[in-house]
Design a protein around this nucleic acid. Structure first.
Length: 160
DNA sequence: GCCAACGTTGGC
DNA sequence: GCCAACGTTGGC
């Protein structure tokens, strides 16, 4: 089902818990860029490694917080590369099965574009029949990285 | 904190 | 290859 979008999508959505890393944290970075590390799901990895291209636009989504929803826009800042946190035994995302000769996990750098004027909450997104096919609102989906169709992207920005 | 809906692991 | 047990995500 994801394959319908992947390959043609130039729009994405990426989740982060704001207590860990928020849109304001990204904005505050001197370079306004950040490596999107720690993703340990194969579908999400495959999208980052195989499908994302520099310049693609991304919704920043706050999850596991008071008001889950889309809070900003960022863009892919470079090509994918191996996630260095997988190699660090001290890191909470360390994976002994990933090594530098044969890396298992990949990431991309993302760059801040702008904050939305307001949070477009998950609750609100679910209220729009036009977005019913969106991966984000499909039942049971927990992917932290997902494609967004061009029509959904434009529809959501028009809600702002 | 609860729990549904996953994904992963490992015994067989 | 099956599937039970376990771990994680993330909304509520």
């Amino acid at each position: 089902m994801l394959g319908v979008f992947v390959g043609m999508a130039n729009y994405w959505l990426m989740k982060s818990e704001p207590g860990e890393f928020s849109i304001d944290d990204l904005k505050a970075r001197p370079s306004k860029t950040e490596p999107w590390d720690g993703v340990r799901n194969y579908q999400a990895r495959n999208m980052m490694r195989d499908e994302m291209k520099p310049g693609d636009q991304v919704f920043f989504y706050h999850s596991a917080c008071e008001e889950p929803g889309i809070v900003g826009v960022m863009k892919i800042a470079g090509k994918p590369y191996p996630d260095p946190t997988a190699f660090d035994p001290e890191d909470k995302h360390f994976d002994p099965k990933s090594d530098r000769d044969n890396p298992r996990w990949f990431l991309v750098d993302v760059k801040f574009v702008r904050k939305l004027k307001r949070t477009i909450s998950l609750t609100e997104l679910k209220e729009h029949d036009a977005l019913a096919e969106m991966v984000l609102v499909r039942r049971g989906n927990r992917l932290s990285v997902m494609p967004v169709s061009e029509s959904d992207w434009k529809y959501i920005l028009a809600l702002e």
